[in-house]
Design a binder for these strands. Sequence first.
DNA 1: TATATTCTAGAATATATATTCTACAGCGAC
DNA 2: GTCGCTGTAGAATATATATTCTAGAATATA
Lengths: 197, 197
Amino acid sequence: MARPKFADRDFLDAALAIAAERGPLAATVGAIAERLGAPVGSFYHRFPSRDVLLGELWLRTVLDFQQGITAALDAGDGLRAALHTPQWVRTHLDEARLLLLYNRDDFLQGGWPEALRDGVAAQTRHMESGFSRFAQLVFGRAGRDEIRRAQFLLAELPVGAVRQHLQRREMPPPIVDELIRITYDAVIADYRARQKR
Amino acid sequence: MARPKFADRDFLDAALAIAAERGPLAATVGAIAERLGAPVGSFYHRFPSRDVLLGELWLRTVLDFQQGITAALDAGDGLRAALHTPQWVRTHLDEARLLLLYNRDDFLQGGWPEALRDGVAAQTRHMESGFSRFAQLVFGRAGRDEIRRAQFLLAELPVGAVRQHLQRREMPPPIVDELIRITYDAVIADYRARQKR
DNA sequence: TATATTCTAGAATATATATTCTACAGCGAC
DNA sequence: GTCGCTGTAGAATATATATTCTAGAATATA
């Protein structure tokens, strides 16, 4: 062995900080290395390419994010799952900017590196199963319509409500949770009313 | 005079097509010129820089988009204003991808070119006044809370509900309008109920 | 201690892209 | 018809960035 001055983690963190500050495009290999005081050689000693680094960063972030939603679903608490987004954003501003302000593939130069394909596919499946579970939980059924509503309540709504605050790098105010709650109740009530007819 | 083979418009359209297809990053000067069969010299004969072209493209698109919302507000129809987004998206898939899938400054290399600053500022003001007008219209008041709700109903909600379809390059299905309607009614009803207390 | 291994270090290279430059062609004004 | 303007045409240039390469240092293990 030799004397590692930097860990994989350090590069990921540096990249996160830069991406959160100036966008994923600014997270160049040079910028990352410079921020860390490391030579680019050390970067390439750990990561085969910039895309792999950014891909890993995205994966690690999304997994952390989803954990809270999964936990809420495990506990059978749909509303908590929907409110997890503003909660998580408040404690993970940088990560949230990376995850919620940019499209999944937008920071990859090329496509997803082979090495990460499986991880991304697993993540996608996990997310989809989350929607199904949510639909089953609050609607008692997971058909096309129920899943579409689940996507709305669990993802589109909370992310939408939080975006403008992320853009301004500020913590989402309580009104955000309030709006999510109101909408959550309304969509479920509407579904049930529709069932009766 | 000479014989213009290309118009400003042609470059803007070519850039739009490329950006909608492969993202704004792919809209390089080379790619735009190639798609048009024009030499890059002609590009720079018309636009001082790539940023100016992309900025103008964004402005022209957002103005077109906002027009419908403004019209609905003029007619005193708040719901129509909220539903304008899915409507417009259906008839302007490419433009919508450009406008709603990326952040305003994300395709500009540098900041906004001096020449466009005023236009962007005016656009921002116009958007803010739209929120105020909406708040006044449906809440009868345009305080902090009312404006925040207006932003939610007019922008975050519709854009959020439409995003996944844009990503898949497909037209938003009717359920999208349905979800917007449900939420619209619920948020307004909640506001009124809160007033009573 | 000798040696292989793991890293640091940063220069060299390749490539993509924006931007500039030079040459020339059509067309109206004179 | 010639001059000058507006554009076309595309080669040349500059720069940013990813990636590779060469050198050498530190440590574990034999």
